[in-house]
Amino acid sequence: MIFGDIAQAIGNTPLVGLPRLSPDGYHLYLKLEGQNPTGSVKDRVAKYLIEEAERYGLLSPGQRVLEPTSGNTGIGLAAICQVKGYPLTCVMPENTSEERKQLLTMFGVEIVHSPATEGSNGAVRMAQQLAADDPSVYMPFQYGNAANSLAHYETTGPEIIADLPDVTAFVAGLGTGGTVTGVGRRLKAWNPDVKIYAAEPEYGDLVYGLRNLDEGYVPEVLDQDVLDSRIKVDSLRALEWTRRLASEEGIFAGVSTGASLAVAARVCGRLPEGAKIVALSPDGGWKYLSTGAYAPGDVKEIASAISGTLWA
């Protein structure tokens, strides 16, 4: 495969069977989004956020892009903006890991720090303020931007159908909701009997402790009606499946992948025998090595030690 530049090399990721992890009578497959150019599913989203903005005239040549993110979306946007000539500002809490700051800086991203004590909500507030104060910047805002799920409706979903036309069910993690919404709508348009399951990470008390129930948040991108079930997975279970994936199937993935596999295995019991279940692996494990998630030792102790930072 040859491509003109990196932006064109996004997508068409491998769909890999997991014969050793599949429960008897069922077939699990994993879509390896870590194979995208910057190493995550967010390359698809970043490309659509920028190209949809271009298409609708929201973004002009050389205009600055601003997004609150220190994670995969920021890295994906950094690469896309670099090759398309848009300067990028990412707003992130000042305690963001050094490896991410270095990666983004290398891509030429301007980093604006929000107070660590305000967490990521502080980053969102600051980004919204900066965007309001400076009309010359464009903020794609993946949580509320339909281009997010459209990326999956137009690329991820059709790839799964092409590779596995008789897919029975699809599982992905719940972050912005873009993946389950876009892929879910596409698969159900193809075959209304396809089941869509969301794996919801169960965060540690550290994360929930910051949440005020009056200020709950359901991302606009998420279409709750496309889901057949939403199942929460704690850090321990996610970590156990992530480690099994490495030791039994030779695949090194991030911890969200383990959460989706746990759900995929759980829902087999409610699907007909012979069912083919696709789980989506959003990224590889590399960016999470420093969390200790893959360190040798007792998985229960590791899970409880890192449950506050694992999903960040």
Binding site: P68, T69, S70, G71, M92, G119, S120, N121, A123, V124, Q128, F141, Y143, G144, L174, G175, T176, G177, P201, E202, Y203, V207, Y208, R211, N212, L213, E215, G216, Y217, V218, P219, E220, L222, K232, G308, T309, W311, A312
Partner: peptide
């Protein structure tokens, strides 16, 4: 559980 999206790097409410 409070509704949470996008992990520790997520917003609570977005106007």
């Amino acid at each position: 559980m409070p509704a949470v999206a996008g992990g520790a790097s997520s917003p609570q409410r977005v106007g």
